[in-house]
Design a protein around this nucleic acid. Structure first.
Lengths: 304, 304
DNA sequence: TTGTATGCGTTATCAA
DNA sequence: TTGATAACGCATACAA
């Protein structure tokens, strides 16, 4: 309700003097920052970087800025990141935590009363967007078994640092059971570079697996390296499969076979849920959770 | 200047009611947000993710939060990111742009009068923290020549999207000249997945190079794939060297040889410069620029 | 359609 | 050492 004449004049002058609205003042007054907080374990794992791209582009579409924070897989880091974001006045949060069950950070967010959604998780206690980790691995193990593999192994990162890893290991156990095979002990390795040595050591066992399922792509890359160092050829001696479907997988040699997650879509779906909730001034219910379909990215690392 | 008694009471009550200072109000009043803006091309290239880690940890140490933004190597993206960060009230900026020479974003920052520093760049017009791109490649080419390579090629991403790439190509030219070799035409490929096909096509030429220098590690990974698809063995037929020294390089098979940059340190050095400038209420001069030493990460991909 | 006053939560200034 | 008051820049409600 302003004269077109006046409007254009104001706009022109604003342009001329390079006026930009002060976000802090606006936030203070409106009690809404138009910023979404994002809590991720790390950005050096491309999975999360890809997801963040999805978050960023969708947020931009809906007129929101984002504020990403990493926890480095650390419990205290999760807490620090959430506290900081909450204090900075974000309107809502996307989180990837170690374990939603015992997360102090999550409790804090919940208490703050802001809408939030967990990415990559899968629990009935919170609104989540992810894939069926357990089902995906179970299905893969069955396919490997059908292809003739009987000694199928599993490699995972530190289980306590990720409920996703736990679910994937569960899928391994279920798959082996369904295939009538006896599961091998899961190889749990640290995130550090020592993982390769450790895997190499495991592979030196008599009768190593002929197929190895890894709980993420970065681990799969290290498993391939360990196999190579141990004198095995991939996939001739050992098939290796990852989980995540990071973009780089297809550029590796051998190309990496992987259960792929729609990382970009997981991110954008999270933002969509949050923005819809914010638009309706509602908080997000666990019922709103989305289980997105996983895919299969075939690759030379796996004989199937 | 407050009674210790009063102080503790206030602190206790604040704790009890879960008081957290409102960042927007504080920023509005003090005209200082204690936030550093970070403008990066992308986070799906691990180089920048690693650098961001360095930025984040150093910033935390100095009591600053960070606000990262990606441009996706887009000129308009640079502009949008900078505008947004400036409006959001950051105290200073770390930037990685396509080309400092013609960057509208940089002009904007400069005009805003906030301290800023360019990461990975190397120019006398601005405060920079980076490595000697040209010298590093030149030196490598000489070493390759000394090892008996005479057909040495160069692969780069889109030159206009990165002055670093331009400087590295220049290093290639200088190195070939110094070695008394005639430089081959530089292979410039897009960031897209079609890069592999393109490289494969190039490699099908009669007498392909026996050594290829790539302007970054992601390209080197694709070059190795292209070589493999074209029927060449790395490094038996072709040696491949990257640039960046991303952490993952050592986990690949073959492990990737690379000119390594101290990505973490580049990030933390940027923050150190900015915080010192902020503490002294000064702006940053180009004289403050830092040229950090590059390294050589040997790897199986290169016969040297 | 335009102008004016008030308050968001904090810090800084000044008086007590 | 403490308490009261103004101002940061914006949005809103209301008056003109």
């Amino acid at each position: 309700m302003v004269n077109a004449q006046t409007r254009s004049t104001v706009l022109r002058v604003a342009q001329e003097v390079g006026y930009v609205a002060n976000a802090s003042a606006r936030t203070l007054r409106t009690r809404s920052s138009k910023v979404l907080g994002v809590v991720l374990p790390t950005l050096t794992n491309p999975v999360f970087a890809e997801c963040l791209q999805g978050i960023a582009s969708q947020a931009a579409l809906r007129g929101y800025a984002i504020s990403p924070c990493t926890t480095e897989y650390d419990h205290a880091g999760e807490d620090a990141a959430t506290t900081r974001l909450l204090a900075s006045g974000v309107d809502a949060l996307v989180l990837v935590v170690s374990n939603p069950g015992d997360s102090a950070a999550l409790a804090r967010v919940r208490q703050a009363g802001k809408p939030y959604v967990l990415a990559y998780h899968h629990t009935h206690e919170h609104a989540c967007v992810g894939v069926d980790n357990t089902g995906a691995v179970r299905e893969l193990v069955l396919r490997l078994a059908a292809a003739g593999h009987s000694r199928i192994g599993m490699v995972t990162g530190q289980l306590q640092a990720s409920d996703r890893a736990q679910q994937r290991c569960r899928g391994y156990a279920l798959g082996m059971q369904a295939a009538g095979l006896s599961p091998l002990p899961v190889w749990e390795v640290p995130f550090a570079a020592t993982a390769v040595q450790m895997l190499q050591h495991h592979l030196a066992e008599q009768a190593p697996p002929t197929a190895i399922v890894c709980s993420n792509d970065l681990l799969a890359i290290r498993t391939i390296r360990a196999a190579s160092l141990a004198g095995f050829s991939v996939p001739a001696d050992i098939s290796v499969v990852g989980f995540d479907g990071i973009a780089m997988a297809g550029d590796l040699t051998p190309s990496l076979a992987s259960i792929s997650q729609p990382n970009h879509d997981i991110g954008s779906a999270c933002v969509r849920l949050l923005c819809d909730a914010l638009a309706g001034k509602k908080t997000l219910a666990a019922q709103e959770s989305l289980c997105l379909p996983h895919g299969w990215r075939s690759g030379e690392s796996c004989r199937l």
